[in-house]
Amino acid sequence: MTSEHSRNCYTVLTNLPPHPGKSSTRFVCISDTHSRTSYFVPPGDILLHAGDLSSWGYPDQMEKTLSWLASLPHSVKIIVAGNHNDISILEATRTRMRSQSIQDTGIYYLEHESMVVTTTSDRSWKVYGSPAAPQYARGAFQYSTPEEAKEIYRRIPNDTEILLTHTPPYRILDKTRKGVHAGCRCLAERLQMLKSCKLHVFGQVHYCRPIMHIHECSGGEIMITDTGERIAVNAAVAWDTQPIIVDLANK
């Protein structure tokens, strides 16, 4: 799909489109791989992984995922965690993902924090990553009240251009099979204030009435905002869907 308003576009991978060249940055978006490494991930400038990298974040699971990510051709791979992290080993997992040896492979782990990444075309993008999600079951990075959610998402800088969250916002690619919108209302409210955000990538949907863990709403959508466009991507690949390519104009 190509927007009528700009050269920004997103593609659900079927036939791999040619890279637009130095005028654009190609983002390749995945999420919820849960220790699986058999996916075909197309090349691009920046890989974005929106969380649930492994089944529970145990060392052998994480090493498998990190080795796979390191083998991918993208010079920069930006990742967040997710609720599928065991709280008891969280510090060890965090230390490993922040290590210099991991960064040397181009992998950068964000946990409620920002980074600036500059492409070979000298376009610098301001990226923010959050692993947070509504309370679902056991696991890390979960919040249970609107007050907690608002405090978490208030940390997102207003000048963020690329937003990476584990959970989706309310009513944006968050619908369950039964037609229920299960995204986070507080995240949706915060997005209305992020005027510079051009791309929001997220993963699974949590729905707690009854408790369900849902990945079936993957895809992309172009949102019209007060200041232009924002591309929303539910990048969950846990149901054998494909990675999503987003080409953003370098302007």
Rank of each mutant, 00 (worst) to 15 (best):
145 T>H: 01
32 D>G: 00
232 A>Y: 08
11 T>R: 10
152 I>L: 15
14 T>S: 10
70 A>M: 03
177 R>E: 15
216 E>P: 05
31 S>P: 09
83 N>V: 14
111 E>Y: 03
9 C>R: 15
66 L>I: 15
24 S>W: 13
50 A>P: 07
217 C>L: 03
146 P>K: 03
149 A>E: 07
32 D>W: 10
38 S>Y: 12
174 D>G: 09
35 S>T: 10
184 C>V: 08
148 E>Q: 14
233 V>I: 11
165 T>H: 10
224 I>R: 15
107 I>T: 07
126 K>Q: 08
74 H>W: 04
251 K>L: 06
195 K>N: 04
44 G>V: 01
1 M>E: 15
132 A>N: 13
53 L>S: 07
101 S>V: 14
199 L>W: 05
163 L>I: 02
128 Y>P: 02
116 V>C: 06
198 K>W: 01
86 D>I: 10
8 N>T: 00
75 S>M: 14
147 E>Q: 09
197 C>P: 04
153 Y>C: 07
19 H>A: 04
230 R>K: 02
168 P>N: 11
251 K>F: 06
215 H>D: 00
19 H>N: 08
215 H>S: 00
221 E>R: 12
31 S>G: 06
121 S>P: 04
61 Q>P: 04
226 D>H: 11
74 H>F: 06
18 P>K: 13
153 Y>A: 06
212 M>C: 12
179 G>A: 11
79 I>S: 03
200 H>L: 00
248 L>Y: 03
106 G>Q: 08
172 I>T: 12
103 Q>M: 10
92 A>D: 09
131 P>T: 13
179 G>E: 05
232 A>W: 03
206 H>S: 15
68 W>T: 04
26 R>Q: 04
11 T>D: 14
247 D>Q: 01
139 G>C: 09
7 R>S: 12
231 I>E: 07
96 R>Y: 15
189 E>P: 06
158 N>V: 07
61 Q>G: 02
38 S>T: 13
127 V>R: 10
8 N>H: 11
153 Y>H: 10
82 G>L: 02
10 Y>P: 11
200 H>N: 00
202 F>Y: 04
9 C>H: 10
206 H>E: 14
230 R>V: 00
218 S>P: 03
217 C>H: 12
232 A>G: 01
216 E>F: 03
18 P>H: 10
87 I>M: 13
56 W>Q: 04
147 E>M: 08
68 W>R: 06
105 T>S: 07
213 H>T: 12
169 P>L: 06
3 S>D: 06
64 K>E: 01
134 P>W: 13
127 V>F: 11
165 T>C: 05
170 Y>W: 12
160 T>I: 11
70 A>D: 00
4 E>H: 12
71 S>L: 01
179 G>N: 12
249 A>C: 04
120 T>N: 14
228 G>W: 02
75 S>W: 13
55 S>R: 11
147 E>D: 14
207 Y>W: 15
181 H>C: 11
247 D>E: 01
56 W>M: 14
228 G>H: 05
250 N>V: 08
54 S>A: 13
165 T>I: 07
26 R>M: 05
75 S>I: 14
180 V>E: 14
5 H>I: 09
151 E>D: 04
94 R>T: 03
251 K>N: 08
134 P>F: 14
7 R>A: 12
228 G>V: 05
219 G>Q: 02
146 P>I: 06
219 G>K: 02
209 R>C: 08
241 T>Q: 02
